[in-house]
Design a protein around this nucleic acid. Structure first.
Lengths: 212, 212, 212, 212
DNA sequence: CATGAATGAGCTTTCATTCAT
DNA sequence: CATGAATGAAAGCTCATTCAT
């Protein structure tokens, strides 16, 4: 009497979600068909429904998995020594086609969240967690004098994350973008936003001194 | 034999595009059917095809119209006296449900651009034009000492527009967002990014003086 | 601006219902597919849905049409001079294959009524109407001394109709049935049930007299 | 190497058929799925196929079991002292919802017999046996002067069974049926059909005598 | 210009059945 | 004996598009 092995089951589920992710990135949520996903996952149409009750469930599951993965990457980067460099790195400006596909998927999720409450909830829970983490990092920075104390850490975290999202539109708006220059300006933008004015003044005085 | 009145024809086209825009905002590009659009525009399915050859053409036409309108608004605001206030105003953070629908539509367009070359081209042409305009404004600002001269105006314009796009994810990521505080920090972010360091130092010294 | 012609529309609807009736008689409600019905009605699958929203609606519509037709036949027969002969005629015992198909359809409807409320309602409304008519005829018979006055006309009508339904199982239970003999006995059964005892006695005394 | 215990095997078969009967009563032959039956019988889908080769076989087996059971009940009742009361009792007019489910199943079988030869054969064999039995009882009644000798016992048996079948449509045609009154009239109907005219005359003369 | 009847490919989903374990 | 993962054909239904009127 062999009972279902829940580990194997979960592994297969993840495999399917990954296959679905690739299809969705290629064709969008509605453009990708169940057939596409089955072909990509190498299973039959009928079998897919042992793992997911509806296509909706696949979309929701896939969004959750993708965002969880993104959050994990973000966490790792942000807990390192250089917050600003980590943020800019997260923007993945230069990844070519593969990166752009991933970005499309992100905007697909955002658009879907506008009319699919299940996806909206997933997206909001994800960003709440990421925002909280970032706010925490900012507060520590404020304690160490590296971040302007006059900024509300929670709001600043939300704004920084929106900048991060926005940065991913750069290559979509302009495929011939100078990614190095853009990354540099984004780094400058974040630096000027976060650095305490006193410190900034000191730096610029020093620069002036150097110049003169 | 009366020939088609081209003015009337164009007017109807615009009407249909507006109807399509409402449907797309509600249900997405694939979720909205030709039937939906016909119902919204009060015409028959057959008649729709006198104005647009395919659904694709409606999507493209609608994206073009929507972006043209956005550009127009943007131009008006940006040519006014206060650039930064205009940018923040453009972010439309507090518009409630209606605003969020419009934002979903924007991200729909962005996601679609990732896999539909026609839409990608429209989006890129639009942003090229807007970017050029904004870069021009920035250059004038640099000439008048209001904008940091060390910034490359073209790249800075692209970055600012990406911040603008990103800001529209704020209410999607968190519907309970404190819109005033967010708008305030975004304004601060742009200010600190653009203001020449020298001027900023002056301001902050002045502030310090006031404080002491 | 040609508007839909409701007459044509209704005619097509009836055509489809007739085609559906044939398919259902052949394969049952679930056994007959939308494709089958479309092929039988010579229309495309998509077009069927201009006339019926769901397969359920086709079943319901078809049941209603079929029962309405049956009621019409019944009414015509029953209002004639010989009620009992009409009832026996209605049993259609000798119609061969075609008849049996029609009977299967009837039992299909009855079985479906057991779990499909919409069909149950249609069936009940139909039989209510037929029962009322038959009860009326019985009451007139009672007034003229042809029907036993001690019978409750309403209950007797229901019982007679159930006998009519039951008679349609005869050829299903036994395909080699002696239809003439069965029809004869059914006629006798109904006669003995309805005829006033006094009249029956007179007849049988007369018969006895003849025999002796 | 233990061989299959044929007793246990048969017992399980019967269990499954009972479970199938409940499912079929609830949802019909095509509406009930193999999954439904497995869940109701608490076995796995694969295991079911150790007992039945196809769904068809389950339907046939279940029909056979159900009809065998019905025949058994019938036999017991009909061999008792009061034939007519037994027939009316068999009609089960007042059993509420449960009864109606059982009746639906009967009509399901009848409808299925119209297009499924296997089921048709089972039904016909069953009714042949029951008819033979009933004909026998009638012949005995004729010998004892309780049943009209002019009736052909075989045909009368078929007609009586069709009345029995038909009676089961009563509550389907009218859920608010007066079951007592209907049962009374059915009893009267059968009585008048079977009783020898001479005896009937005697009874009615007696009644007249009483009345006068 | 305007209609809506008509098409048919293709969608998501279901389900009887098989098979490795 | 018993499981449930796996199949794949086919179901009901949708929808962009065409066309006679």
């Amino acid at each position: 009497m062999r009972k279902t092995d829940p580990v194997k089951h979960e592994k297969k589920r993840q495999e399917i979600l990954e296959a679905a992710g690739r299809c969705f990135a290629r064709k969008g949520f509605q453009g990708a068909t169940i057939s596409d996903i089955c072909a990509e996952a190498n299973i039959s149409a009928g079998h897919l429904y042992h793992y997911f009750a509806t296509k909706e469930a696949i979309i929701a599951g896939m969004a959750a998995a993708r965002l969880a993965f993104a959050a994990e990457c973000f966490n790792r980067g942000v807990e390192g020594p250089d917050l600003i460099a980590a943020l800019v790195a997260e923007m993945e400006l230069g990844k070519g086609k593969a990166g752009r596909k991933g970005h499309s998927l992100l905007f697909e999720i955002i658009a879907e969240a506008g009319r699919n409450p299940a996806v909206a909830k997933i997206l909001q829970e994800h960003s709440k967690a990421v925002r909280a983490l970032l706010a925490d990092v900012l507060r520590k920075g404020q304690a160490r004098g590296l971040v302007d104390e006059s900024l509300d850490a929670d709001v600043a975290a939300a704004v920084l994350l929106s900048v991060l999202s926005g940065s991913k539109t750069l290559t979509i708006h302009d495929p011939k973008l100078d990614t190095k220059a853009s990354a540099g300006l984004l780094q400058l933008l974040i630096t000027r936003f976060l650095t305490p004015p006193a410190k900034l003044r000191a730096q610029s005085e020093q620069m002036n001194a150097t110049v003169n």
